[in-house]
Simulated assay, not measured.
Amino acid sequence: MSELLGVAVLGAGHMGADHIRRIDQVVSGARVAAVADPETERAKGAVAGIDGVSVHTEVAAALDAPGVGAVLIASPGPAHEEALLAAFARGLPVLCEKPMVPESAGALRVVEAEARLGRRLVQVGFMRRYDAEYGRLKSLLDSGQLGRPLMLHCTHRNVSSPPGFTSAMLVNSSVSHEIDAARWLLGQELTAVTVRRPQPSAHAPQGLLDPQFVLFETSGGALVDVEVFVNSGFGYQVRCEAVCESGTARIGDEHTMVVTRSGGACEEVAQDYLVRFADAYDREVQTWVDATREGRVTGPGAWDGYAASAVAEAGVRALETGGRVAVDLAPRPDLYG
Rank of each mutant, 00 (worst) to 15 (best):
C240I: 04
S232Q: 15
G247R: 13
E227Q: 14
H177Q: 07
G263P: 02
V195I: 08
V195E: 06
W184N: 14
V175L: 10
T191N: 02
S161I: 10
G247E: 05
E227W: 13
V259F: 01
V193L: 02
A202I: 04
P200W: 01
E178N: 10
R239N: 00
W184T: 04
Q237W: 14
R239P: 00
M169P: 10
Q212R: 12
A222R: 06
S160W: 08
R197H: 15
G235K: 01
S160F: 12
G187E: 12
V226A: 13
Q188L: 01
R261Q: 12
V195M: 07
S246A: 05
R250Y: 01
W184L: 06
V243C: 07
T256S: 02
L170Y: 05
L215N: 11
E189V: 11
S176R: 15
S176W: 13
V228G: 09
V175A: 12
G207H: 07
V171M: 02
S167K: 01
A242Q: 06
I179N: 07
E227M: 12
T194V: 11
Q199H: 05
L215I: 12
V226W: 07
V224K: 13
S173A: 10
V226S: 03
A222I: 12
S232D: 13
L170N: 07
I251D: 00
V214A: 01
A202F: 07
A202D: 10
V224P: 11
T248D: 01
A168I: 10
M257V: 09
S246W: 04
M257N: 08
T191D: 03
R261V: 07
S176F: 05
G187W: 14
G247D: 08
A192C: 13
T260M: 12
A181N: 12
H156N: 14
A168R: 10
G235C: 05
A182K: 13
A242H: 04
L208R: 14
A249D: 06
A242D: 03
A202H: 08
V230F: 03
F229N: 08
E189I: 11
D210V: 00
V193A: 02
P211N: 14
T194H: 10
E189C: 15
V258R: 11
H255N: 14
T191Q: 08
A222N: 09
F229A: 05
A202R: 10
A265K: 00
H255L: 14
T194L: 03
